[in-house]
Design a protein around this nucleic acid. Structure first.
Length: 486
RNA sequence: GGCGUCGUGGCCGAGUGGUGAGGCAGAGGUCUGCAAAACCUUUUACGCGGGUUCGAUUCCCGCCGACGCCUCCA
């Protein structure tokens, strides 16, 4: 079955047909780098990582662009986020940007998030933004007031089509006294005049200033993906005004449709003191940083947790749900470890090759689930069902030949590893630390086997307990002992 | 108030007009020096009220409730 995607623009599941056959241009709104990433960011970017991985697994040549916002994102006090942070810790703004950009990539790398092909920074694309603003002024979509430039929403008749908002109905929300430069309250800034104390400033045809928040995505998407491209992603919380403004700017400036499919992710929530779920966010202070979460759970478990619910829905983070995710992930992981260790001593040949059909069926079921709007929970269910059958096979008396074990392993490698990114990355280079460690563990297992054969259980348990302390779990099976890390 | 998403068993979480997805937790069993793992069996479901239908958890209407956005957030 071909891939179907729920397009927020139109709010329906649609057959995915890229602009150019076999290629996908994709833009995802990235983070504002003024602090460490938290699990809410992880949910969004793991979700899009999974989508990109699946598109590539399906044979698409994906160009994935995800911006870094390092200028222009203002607080409601009119203060720039980056500048505020810089003042707090007495640093130069670009120092902040650099620190947290590195931190962001460090976290995403740890979570096995494949890096975007291009990670453009807003501050590095000011000329492109200025150019687009000039085009908008020339075509009558924007106007200059005292060194600032605003987009005239009344010139974009389709404004509101993504978020289903009608301009006239929103008047009530306008607060008196704010941004009185604007002709209409719903107009938004493309360029802001820099007050003397504003350090981040650039020359422009309208004097020194800095770009508005929305224009960066429009300018950078156009630069790297062209006026029209396939998929635009982001968190649902940016639906309005950010995404809506992007569309208005881009389509007005380019005279062409902007993104064809809009894919937005639901928010990560946390229960408050009364047990009511609320969004995890910086401003509420109820966040868990990715770095802290990684101290408690391995990256595969965090990914698995995120993938147990559909990307578009909300997810409630709690210790219980994480523990449950860990249990579910371990079941799959144990089967993979069992397969790997049986491969070490399996007979050559294809005994048990009737199982190959089951593997094909698993791939088909997994693909069908993912083709249905990237339904990762359903895809995981197909892996769990496969795992039950794999366990039954490997624990039976039947002989399983090496080629069949390899086929099983490859199936997990492709589906759980390549697509979902939930298999530990095992180094295949010879004599890595990992290999040395594996050799030492196996040596200890041999010593323990000798002790067990002599019924010296005190000694065998001592070895097992000591290894457990170090995070290596042993499991005795009729045909020997297997191990895995926790 | 406006726009939107959603309400599934102890918990998490898919899905469908008519055979109880899957996982976690619980109970019993098999296996085992112990442990662990695995497998088998097993217990609780579809917010409330109407309507359409032979039949609705699934479609329609209303209500209630939760969350998100409308002002910075992935």
């Amino acid at each position: 079955m071909p891939l179907q995607i729920f397009n927020v623009l139109g709010r329906e599941k649609q057959l995915f047909e890229p602009l150019e056959e076999g290629r996908v241009g994709m833009y995802v709104c990235g983070p504002t780098v003024y602090d460490h990433a938290h699990l809410g960011h992880a949910k969004t970017y793991v979700a899009f990582d999974t989508i990109v991985r699946y598109l590539r697994y399906s044979g698409y040549d994906v160009l994935y662009v995800q911006n870094i916002t390092d200028v222009g994102h203002l607080l409601d006090t009119g203060e720039d986020r980056i500048l505020k942070k810089a003042r707090q810790i007495q640093a130069v703004p670009m120092q902040i940007v650099e620190t947290y950009t590195r931190s962001y990539f460090e976290d995403m790398d740890a979570l096995h998030v494949v890096r975007p092909d291009i990670s453009p920074r807003a501050s590095g694309h000011v000329p492109e933004q200025i150019k687009m603003i000039e085009e908008l002024i020339a075509s009558g979509h924007a106007y200059v007031v005292d060194g600032s430039v605003y987009f005239d929403v009344s010139t974009a008749p389709e404004y509101g089509k993504l978020s289903n908002r009608k301009i006239d109905a929103q008047q009530a929300g306008w607060r008196e006294g704010v941004n009185t430069d604007k002709r209409n309250p719903e107009d938004f800034a493309l360029w802001k005049k820099a007050e003397p104390e504003h350090i981040m400033r650039w020359d422009s045809p309208w004097g020194e200033g800095f770009p508005g928040w929305h224009i960066e995505c429009s300018a950078m998407a156009r630069k790297y993906l062209g006026p029209t491209f396939d998929i635009h992603g982001g968190g649902i919380d940016n639906l309005f005004p950010h995404n809506e403004c992007e569309i208005a700017q881009s389509e007005s400036a380019n005279g062409a449709p902007f993104a064809r499919y809009w894919v937005l992710t639901g928010s990560l929530q946390v229960s408050d003191a009364d047990g009511i779920p609320v969004k995890m966010s910086k401003s509420l202070g109820n966040f868990v940083t990715v770095k802290d979460a990684l101290k408690q759970y391995r990256p595969e478990v965090i990914r698995f947790f995120i993938q147990t619910s559909h990307y578009a829905g909300p997810v409630i983070y709690s210790n219980d749900s994480m523990t449950s995710a860990r249990g579910g992930w371990e079941r799959i992981y144990h089967a993979v470890r069992l397969t790997e260790q049986m491969m070490n001593s399996a007979p050559e040949g294809d005994d048990g090759n009737a199982f190959l059909e089951r593997l094909e069926q698993a791939r088909a079921a997994f693909g069908a689930a993912m083709d249905d709007d990237f339904n990762t929970p359903k895809a995981l269910a197909t892996l769990q069902e496969l795992t039950r059958d794999v366990n039954n096979l490997l624990n039976s008396d039947a002989t399983v030949g090496l080629s069949v074990l390899q086929a099983i392993h490859e199936t997990y490698d492709n589906l759980a590893g390549d697509v979902l990114g939930i298999m530990p990355q095992n180094g295949v280079t010879p004599m890595t630390d990992g290999d040395r460690e594996a050799g030492l563990i196996e040596l200890l297992i041999e010593l323990r086997a000798k002790a067990r054969a002599e019924k010296n259980y005190a000694e065998s348990d001592r070895i097992r307990d000591a290894l457990a302390e170090l995070g290596v779990v042993l499991e005795d099976r009729p045909d020997g002992t297997i191990w895995r890390t926790v």
